[in-house]
Design a protein around this nucleic acid. Sequence first.
RNA 1: GCCGUUGUAGCUCAGGGGUAGAGCACUUCCUUGGUAAGGAAGAGGCCAAGGGUUCAAAUCCCUUCAAUGGCUCCA
Length: 645
Amino acid sequence: MSEIKITLPDGSVKQYQSGTSALQIAQSISEGLARNIIAAKVNGKVVDATLPVNMDADLVLLKWEDKEGKNTFWHSSAHLLAEALEALYPGVKFGIGPAIDAGFYYDIDFGDHKFTSEDFGKLENKMLELAKNDSKYERKEVSKSDAIQYFTEKGDPYKIELLQDLNDGEITFYSQGNFTDLCRGPHIPATSFIKAVKITSLAGAYWRGNEKNKQLTRIYGITFPKKSELDAHLLMMEEAKKRDHRVLGKDLEIFCFDDDVGPGLPLWLPKGAAIIERLEEFAKKTEKEAGYVRVKSPHIAKESMYIKSGHLPYYQDSMFPPMELDGTKYYLKAMNCPHHHKIFDATPKSYKDLPVRYAEYGTCYRYEQSGELFGLMRVRSLTMNDAHIYCTKAQFEQEFKAVNNLYLKYFKVFGIDKYVMRFSKHDPKKLGQKYINSPELWKETEDMVRNVLISAGIPYVEVEDEAAFYGPKIDIQIWSAIGREFTLATNQVDFAQAERFDLSFINEKSEKERPLILHRAPLSTHERFIGFLLEHYAGKFPLWLAPEQLIILPISEKYQEYAEKVLNVLKKHDIRALIDDRSEKTGKKIRDAEMKKLPLMLIVGEKEQAENTVSVRKQGGEDLGTMSLESLTDWINKEIETQLN
RNA sequence: GCCGUUGUAGCUCAGGGGUAGAGCACUUCCUUGGUAAGGAAGAGGCCAAGGGUUCAAAUCCCUUCAAUGGCUCCA
């Protein structure tokens, strides 16, 4: 037999017999290592650890700690779930069962049987029982006709449908115990790797994601190689739930919903409104410095405007139905851009006026499907940190860059670092349907955007079929506490609406020319941004943004008068403060202030009253000591200045 | 919009065919206490809404509304 050269990640090269598996290679290094090997990466491709290697290769041994290792582990767990289901409910039919970011799911057609969350325990136990059998995951290449025959005999129509799309020669089965599945692999060596199982939830899911298809039962689960890891995971999930903006928003009295107001229509309580005020102050100042001017527009407009803008055919389903007055239809605005275009068009423009930057915190209404509403992250009334920039082609790059820099500046202030910049492009197949049919302009503007991103050295991912109908965009993707992905902010190019609105400026040659338009909303909408910030800060807003910045805690009622004196001084300095005048002990007052996540606590008693000072405690416990009111206000101002720069 | 689950006090939840319970919060009183929970008493509910079954419904059934986990969709 021939020899092969295996290169390990540390660069070392070892010789093995051809046909040696990654697992055997691991064993040759150490038994302990081999026990932890879940899969292997051979020349960059993830494969079974037991697959024989027949050529010289770069080899990475994948463990649970590796992302691909977890992926393989969970994918194999989905097969174990299926095996358990088949044992418990003979005759169930299987859809697909992939690994996801945290765990796996399997789509099941239970036929007439009703599977409920009460069956979770039974299923978990069965999975653990089967795991203990230590069944090997065995790979087998099969011909397409054999594969179809197998599933026809078994009576699994979904698998047969999946097989139709596969080519003969690339089909593999994996078996463990009594269960065989159509699967590309790879898998863990044996079921005994799985030591802890948790079925997490149950949901309906359309077969192949199409709402016209039958709805299957999707069972979500997660597994671990150690019981302790499952416990840690469950604890983490509990913590994430506490961070959920819907929970914090209620606890901290930021916002609420009311049945009489309507779903997706948040009410801002005083503390929520205070945060909005801070955000707007900050945005208006920043935008002013960046050369924006502010405009204002009404909340409704005639149908004709949305026909002109081209929004109506794309957007009608997600707009509130129109009101009809004297035969004219009026829509609640779902976006601010057409209004801004009209403002641009209201006065003649010269090239000397450009770029024109119109900013507005504009409130829009979108009739999102009821099932899509999600706390503050998906709502039906939203106030956007909107602006539109009208510029020449020559100015485009600089403007686009400036907008990007603005984003980065904001992200620094808010400490936003876990995001992905997504360069969202059109899909050429959908020109004329989802996207304006101008292939050259798409190419041109997408190239411009890419160039800006590359020259600015900003990391990004390119994604097709995510653009706006009027042009490409950059989306900032973030994740909520419970792991749901959202677009926080967008920066969009628009080459279509200027044409539709017949917008123009007079260029140097005294000719009419169309401006390019940028749409941008770096601070998203108040709803989504505050929802995000609640989770991001876990409710502990920084001093500049906190609805209530500090609370004065008199040691006893005897110091109430002094506390009020302090309050008045602070109010004169525009500091948002209040007094806890309850007849409670200081420990209790501190605890309650901590629960409300107030950034600062001022303790005042005999000593402070005598010296005309306050004792300052930061949220979390840090003692800033005793200071005069003057040094406190100085300290606060400095702190805020640091936070905003 | 579709499928599953849930809806009991301001909040978190228990209960469950015979006219409602806890903890926290709230109010009052006692206490005047120095860096994460002092004590006592009190008040607070058409058990989401509507209909049905029943001698009797918060409890069982149906419809609606809302929330929630997904799917589809999206800033």
